[in-house]
């Protein structure tokens, strides 16, 4: 997404790796050229060739303009290039999960509501109708919640300059409050508490897995 929003380059913290000694001989004990040339391993063609080391292949997420997220404590389960990656992966996973759970619920609801002795086409239609009624509803709600949560989480991270569990729980509470903000204070509080709990559970799971 960096083509759309542009991205501030994170300061490179990694130091230049120290140049390794790659000469095949000890430079202090050189007396003349023929001495060097006769040393075994000094002129290793497989290392001196301009295309040496290409057999290692290209590593994903290891290119110069695609630096990984370097905010302190923000390294998650999968490598991330920054807030837009977190947003996409987080929202996508939660949305898909909501779609799946809602779809499964709709499936069993449809199975229970099949009209007695109906043709097979009607049976399939009943089940599909129930799936498409429940799945997208739950998926959309969960997806919107995850989207809000991820945006707020990344914003708090950027302000504080680091990421920890407190950020996640706070972002969850704010996201839950916004989600129910048109229903009054009591639902807002309940939804904020639920979302904070969910964010805390996710943090615990993440630290357990990594």
């Amino acid at each position: 997404m960096s083509w759309l929003f542009g991205s501030r380059k994170a300061e490179q913290k990694a130091e230049e790796p120290v140049q390794q000694q790659s000469l095949g001989f000890d430079p202090t004990s050189v007396s003349d050229i023929s001495n060097i040339l006769s040393t075994p391993g000094a002129l290793d063609t497989s290392r001196l060739h301009p295309l040496a080391g290409l057999d290692k292949g290209i590593e994903y997420l290891d290119l110069e303009d695609e630096v990984l997220n370097q905010t302190e404590g923000a390294q998650g389960l999968i490598p991330s290039r920054g807030w837009s990656d977190d947003l996409c992966y987080g929202t996508g996973a939660v949305y898909l999960m909501g779609l799946g759970i809602g779809g499964a619920y709709g499936f069993q609801e449809g199975i229970r509501n099949i009209p007695a002795n109906s043709p097979p086409k009607l049976k399939i239609n009943t089940i599909l109708n129930h799936i498409t009624k429940r799945g997208p509803y739950l998926g959309n709600s969960a997806g919107v919640l995850a989207l809000t949560y991820n945006i707020i989480d990344s914003t708090i991270d950027a302000f504080r300059g680091k990421h920890d569990d407190l950020n996640s729980v706070g972002a969850g509470a704010i996201a839950g409050a916004i989600f129910k903000s048109s229903k009054g204070f009591r639902p807002m509080g309940i939804s904020a508490g639920l979302m904070a709990g969910a964010a805390g559970a996710w943090c615990g799971l993440k630290s357990l897995l990594s």
Binding site: M1, I58, Y60, L61, L63, E66, I78, D85, L87, C88, Y89, G90, T91, G92, A93, Y95, L96, G143, V144, L147
Partner: peptide, 24 residues
Amino acid sequence: DHSRDPCPIVILNDFGGAFSMGVI
């Protein structure tokens, strides 16, 4: 295209990206 992740996991990314784009 190396600005995108390798295949099976990029599906998740596209799901989330398209959903976010649609919601916003």
